[in-house]
Design a protein around this nucleic acid. Structure first.
Length: 670
DNA sequence: TGTCCTCGAGTTCC
DNA sequence: CTCGAGGACA
């Protein structure tokens, strides 16, 4: 029975319409219709297809997820070999290469594009229809992943053109956004599966799923950067190729730039490196191609890479290296932290040789062993971290990391507290030194850092917080590196620090869970040290921000006779507790009054702490991370993840320039 | 009870 | 910056 003509017409219209909507939604990121409207059209389409399966078009949106689970992938050849790119590891190598080209071909132009970090894929179109998708493989042949590629919404099943060439092989990168990567890992973690070390691995792994319905659920995207074999179509330049691919309905490498001069390319390279963190997809460099295809042809290729293109790599944010040892650090509270010692490796511009493993639960969960190869990264932030262990490369003699059963510093007993391991010896030198350092920081005693704190404890000069205030210049001179002048200077700093407001006094006691903020709450409530020391449970619980757990910690601390003795001794040694500073006057009108502000990235004219002080004085509250309740995020150079968080939550983003404008408005000139 | 949000604690390199 | 955990609130 023939299918009624009007059904066929309606069907064709529906397919074309839905493909157009998909294109606007996925490629242009500019939805044309509501989700509800889209779903309704799709429902109508499915209805027709169920009734008349014989008219189903291969480019119907329903045909994206179809296939059954494969046993393995077939091999498929690349008609034109898919070569890799030569790398320029820094600006000078890039400049050298550009120079060489210009010397040979002064008329050469350069097409510069971002190099996103994913997995390469070739799409074969015959008469405008996608017939095959092949991974890069060894360059001459790869794996046929057509069923999986069809599930990627930014890959057109049919080219958007009325007269498609008989054949064109489109090449590009399959990617997963950082956000989707994180969500995917969270999900895999919940399901107890293995997580991916980075977005590149996640994209490659997702593309090579034997079950296409799994690939369909991973939000992959495809960005086209070139062509392989083609016939029935002519190109003169690389830019023309990309523009044509744009027209065919692909997402293409952007932002790209056509450069006449070497310096223009360098400028682009610098600009992209600076902006790399603001892209949704991880970018590991730029690609520069000679724009004119006739010059490309004259330059030719080596067996490994074309001579007319190069990858200008950025400083890597992620590297692999080996764990050579593990040491255990003991902090001021007695928390024992395992730290991995690495074979030094450059990551994001600095040499990283150690990285915290946080706690033993994490060691166990990641199953890190001494001798393992690991991924180390240092993204927009400062602190390096191990993102994954490369288990395939584990040497047979890799040693598991065991939690110590004694404190590695004092040999005292340890207990497990939640995720942490803690040394409970009150007299542990590591704890004493840690606390001393903490006091110095809170009281702003200059010149008392880690090494001096350690030395003071080692020489038996400081055993408890009160001892610090009894130090004489001649005591300090016993330390290595201290002579009369420096000892006197430190002594004077300590004398100055003896006068402190109640909140700082409470802070330096080191009550578990009580830091700067909580100490301030306590000081505001009790006003005097005496009141604080006589606090009852109900007094404490009446304070907003203090619950049962903290109240218990505080009571245990102030009722402990040993702690009472140390407090007495501090007063005897000349510590003076000043009345709390009055709450600041009502701040006058300012764009920051009562606002919650977060900084990310480097500011040009101010340090982070200066900027923080200024906006706090204007009535703002500065916090460390972005949440829905944040009012504005001030973005400097090289912003970190907080910039993306702000975008995600729709929090107001203030660029550095605008920030200075706002300060000016509030009467602060920078 | 679950879901934010905020705080505390430890952290790298130079 | 990241983690864990305490506290507030629905």
């Amino acid at each position: 029975m023939a299918v009624p003509k009007e059904i066929i017409e309606k069907y064709n219209k529906l397919v074309d319409l839905l493909n157009k909507y998909d294109y606007y939604y996925y490629v242009l990121d500019r939805p044309l219709v509501s989700d509800a409207e889209y779903d309704e059209l799709k429902r109508q389409l499915k209805e027709i297809e169920e009734k008349y399966p014989e008219i189903i078009r291969p480019d119907s949106p329903t045909q994206r997820v179809g296939g059954k689970v494969a046993e393995g992938f077939k091999e498929a050849p690349h008609r034109v070999p898919m070569l890799s790119l030569e790398n320029a590891m820094n600006e000078s190598e890039l400049r050298q290469w550009l120079r060489k080209i210009k010397d040979q071909f002064p008329e050469a132009l350069f097409c510069a594009e971002p190099k996103f970090d994913g997995t390469s894929l070739e799409l074969v179109y015959e008469n405008g229809i996608l017939i095959r998708a092949i991974t890069r493989g060894d360059g001459t042949k790869g794996e046929d992943v057509t069923a999986n590629a069809r599930t990627i919404r930014t890959i057109p099943l049919k080219l958007m053109t009325d007269n498609p060439p008989p054949r064109i092989d489109v090449r590009g990168e399959v990617l997963i956004s950082r956000k989707d990567f994180e969500e995917l890992n969270e999900q895999l973690m919940r399901e107890g599966g293995r997580t991916f070390a980075n977005p590149r691995n996640a994209a490659a792994g997702s593309l090579r799923q034997l079950d296409p319905s799994i690939t369909a659920k991973r939000r992959l995207t495809f960005i086209a950067w070139g062509v392989g074999y083609y016939e029935g179509i002519e190109f003169e330049t690389q830019c023309q190729i990309l523009d044509t691919l744009d027209g065919f309905g692909f997402k293409t490498s952007n932002p790209r730039k056509l450069c006449r001069e070497i310096e223009e390319v360098i400028e682009y390279y610098r600009e992209m490196e600076e902006k790399r963190d603001s892209f949704d997809y991880e970018m590991d460099g730029i690609v520069v191609k000679v724009a004119q295809l006739d010059i490309q042809e004259k330059l030719g290729a080596t067996s490994h890479h074309p001579r007319w293109a190069i990858a200008g790599k950025f400083k890597p944010v992620e590297r692999t290296t080996q764990v050579v040892d593990v040491v255990y650090q003991v902090g001021r509270t007695g928390i024992i932290t395992p730290v991995a010692i690495l074979k030094p490796v450059e990551v994001g511009g600095v040499i990283v040789s150690r990285v915290s493993l946080h706690n033993f639960d994490q060691v166990k969960q990641m199953d890190i062993r001494v001798g393992d190869w690991v991924y180390v990264r240092r993204a927009g932030d400062v602190i390096p971290e191990i993102t994954a262990v490369i288990k395939e490369r584990r040497p047979p003699d890799a040693k598991p990391i065991e939690p110590p059963d004694r404190c590695p510093v004092c040999g005292g007993p340890v207990v497990k507290e939640g995720a942490y391991l803690k040394c409970i010896n009150m007299a542990c030198p590591a704890k004493q030194a840690g606390q001393l350092e903490y006091m110095a920081k809170v009281l702003e005693i200059e010149g008392l850092g880690e090494s001096t704190a350690n030395a003071l404890v080692k020489h038996g000069l400081v055993k408890d917080p009160a001892d610090l205030f009894a130090l004489k210049p001649q005591d300090i001179m016993k330390l290595p590196g201290y002579a009369t002048r420096s000892a006197t200077k430190l002594y004077e700093q300590i004398q100055k620090a003896k006068k402190m407001p109640l909140d700082k006094f409470i802070t330096i006691l080191g009550i578990p869970g009580v830091g700067k903020e909580t100490a301030k709450l306590l000081a505001q409530k009790f006003k005097t040290l005496e009141n604080f020391l006589n606090a009852t449970e109900s007094d404490l619980l009446s304070i907003k921000g203090i619950g049962y757990q903290l109240a218990k910690n505080i009571l245990t601390f102030i009722r402990n006779p040993e702690n009472r003795r140390v407090i007495e001794k501090m007063l005897k040694n000349g510590v003076e507790v000043l009345p709390m500073e009055e709450e600041k006057e009502e701040v006058r009108e300012s764009p920051f009054a009562g606002k919650k502000v977060v900084f990310t990235g480097e500011l040009e004219k101010l340090t982070r702490s200066q900027a923080k002080k200024i906006v706090e004085s204007l009535g703002a509250k500065v916090t460390g991370s972005v949440s829905r309740s944040t009012d504005m995020v001030i973005v400097g150079k090289n912003p970190g993840r907080k910039y993306r968080d702000a975008q995600r939550y729709g929090v107001r983003i203030v660029p550095e320039e605008e920030f200075y404008e706002m300060l000016k408005e509030a009467g602060v000139e920078v």
